[in-house]
Design a protein around this nucleic acid. Sequence first.
DNA 1: CTTGACTCAGACATCGTTGTCTGATTTATT
DNA 2: AATAAATCAGACAACGATGTCTGAGTCAAG
Lengths: 202, 202
Amino acid sequence: MPKQPTPAEAPAPKRRRADAERSVAAILDAALEALASDPDSSMSAIARRAGVVRATIYVHFPTRTDLLDAVMEYAIAQVVEAMSGAEPHRGRPVEALERVLRATWRQLAQFHGLLALNTARLSAEELRRRHRPMLDQLEPLIERGQKQSVFRSDLPVAWHLAVIRAIVHTASHESQGGRIPESEAEAAMLSTAISAISARAL
Amino acid sequence: MPKQPTPAEAPAPKRRRADAERSVAAILDAALEALASDPDSSMSAIARRAGVVRATIYVHFPTRTDLLDAVMEYAIAQVVEAMSGAEPHRGRPVEALERVLRATWRQLAQFHGLLALNTARLSAEELRRRHRPMLDQLEPLIERGQKQSVFRSDLPVAWHLAVIRAIVHTASHESQGGRIPESEAEAAMLSTAISAISARAL
DNA sequence: CTTGACTCAGACATCGTTGTCTGATTTATT
DNA sequence: AATAAATCAGACAACGATGTCTGAGTCAAG
């Protein structure tokens, strides 16, 4: 399947003016912020935050659902990039996990609110499908740790992944609520995550 | 402070007809179910599920917010009752924790959706204040475990509580999504929760 | 500089939801 | 059986959100 005659880049082959490109970016960023703090943010609110008129959003995203999908893809791409940048494959599993989580957790925290949104509007399967890219970054790492008997093997990988996700979100939640400072939250998250999935006798 | 001249029971001193009592109960139950599956359920939807006309809800709950508050109080009361029924104070900390979680987690799962609702409409502090009764059931248990060096003392109790809550929710989520059967989810939840908060050398 | 793409300002119809009200009917209580 | 309480059925206004449209103005690219 070689290149089509149309000189299309991979995802959005539309040729837009630099102008429009900026608008889309602004809208995406604004939507991310707005929806993270309130998943029911209206199009007006998003437009206002983006410094744009509401109708402009509809030029680029025909419907609210389309915008939501785009925002989700945008957010996940950012997280995946941060994760893979932390090289999950390198070094001993425990250290690799710490490295990845450290690099990721603040970002995940930022997008925390989006989860609520998506659990509401998407089926569980669909949601899982879209989160896949993030899990794919961690899954081999966990499996590697299991093979080395560093992580518990009596529980499925999927469970470990779910637990780690939950602990990361907990840390962001507790720190965002001012219950514990960010640095302590990070430390607590790391050590609890390790504890939770580590095999008994180290 | 002895009894007031008015023969008032503790919470709701209103003298209602048996009739109305049933309606309120039906509405509360319906709202619980409806909101758990969709936090944005409309009054119509709730009324329909309760086998009642929408106007009837407004007879007992002047506004949507009032209903939401009542539902939340109702749900929390149920959970607290289940928890205290499991006698958190009795026996060794690890076993007591297992007992309490086992008795509670399915119920908590049922109300899982309400959390999303309340995080949206309430401030973090207010939310925390209302969840207090549930935490109060667990807190002494965790502290007891820490004093016996069974649970980690290098992390605050509040953190342990948050982690436990997160793990329970994760279990309910994974099992509800059909990723693992309920019994396995329960086992995984228990053993992970213990792992997460236990001190290193048992 | 000229053209076409893009944005703005503001209006509009449509829809669903909340909250109120009325009058007729049923039901619990005594 | 009589009385008061509660529900029903259905209408209503008010509101906010989505999505569409128009016409005028602005900006990037050739």
